[in-house]
Design a protein around this nucleic acid. Structure first.
Ligand code: SF4
Ligand code: SF4
Lengths: 143, 143
DNA sequence: ATTTAATCAGACATTTTTATCTGATTTTAT
DNA sequence: ATAAAATCAGATAAAAATGTCTGATTAAAT
């Protein structure tokens, strides 16, 4: 199986995007997120907990509790979710699995992959999640 | 953990590159590949077997047996290894893990990711492995 | 012929990832 | 007060990926 991000990370990004799209200070329950995004309830619940620990989102317990972004959507980027869940190792390691990637020990696809890595990083870094709001809403409405 | 290709696939690409670099019709043993590339012996052995089944490499049994490319290095590309081991699904699916990726249901990073996907595909498709020979040798000598 | 060194096939084991369960706690609404 | 609906913590389970073992077979070298 080929993968870029782990399931946890994918789900985490989806959830954060959903919070950003759904939010005007409203609390969103794990149950709602689970249903809308079609992610197993208990699993997304765990992911949300871990994102809370990372300080990206906040939660409130009790009836009518739920989750919301810990700060403004204009100050959160997808890379933050990746950093919190999968970490940023992929941006410093080898597609071919060789150890010690460096300009002095380049692998056969060094230059190309280096550029792609940078572009991927840029993709996750350049736009804050509020900018992705309409696209997210459109995507979600098609689920 | 963030990953692009599975370990099997990474090791498979390394092994095929090594065969291409090492080869002038010589047979290379799983043991040698294991030692040079620092891949667990029995594991790389299995991978080599599966690549043989896929027809990418061929083997001969018995003393002084081993593996070699099934066809000229100028007719093998890294994408062939990926196709044989991990499959090509990643080139048709979503970084954010949404189902039904399509232009009519784009995810928030659709355009950028589409382009990156294509570039990644190109990286694995544009050069045949004989072209990567010197780079491979240089990389391996540093292991 | 016998030994040696290799692939091969398939079972087995370990680790990591993904997912679920159980029960406790918190908070709101009635 | 009580019930309802939510998060939370930690254990457990299931599945997938990674890695190992055993013994059989094959073929070259002695
Ligand atoms: S740039 Fe090349 S050497 Fe460096 S990690 Fe990527 S593939 Fe490996
Ligand atoms: S292009 Fe966008 S919608 Fe399509 S798979 Fe990639 S991220 Fe998802």
């Amino acid at each position: 199986m080929t993968v870029i991000f782990s399931k946890k990370c994918e789900y985490g990004m989806q959830a954060v995007l959903y919070l950003a799209a759904r939010e005007k200070g409203t609390l969103v329950s794990a149950d709602e997120i689970s249903k809308v995004l079609k992610i197993p309830r208990e699993f997304v619940s765990k992911i949300l907990q871990s994102l809370r620990e990372s300080g990206l989102i906040s939660s409130s317990k009790g009836k009518s509790g739920g989750f919301s972004l810990a700060k403004s959507a204009s100050r959160i980027k997808l890379i933050d979710v990746v950093a919190a869940i999968d970490g940023l190792d992929m941006f410093d390691s080898c597609v071919l699995g060789f150890q010690e990637c460096s300009p002095t020990h380049p692998c056969p696809v060094h230059n190309t992959w280096g550029s792609l890595r940078t572009q991927t990083y840029d993709m996750l870094t350049s736009e804050t999640i509020d900018k992705l709001k309409e696209k997210t809403l459109h995507k979600i409405s098609s689920l």
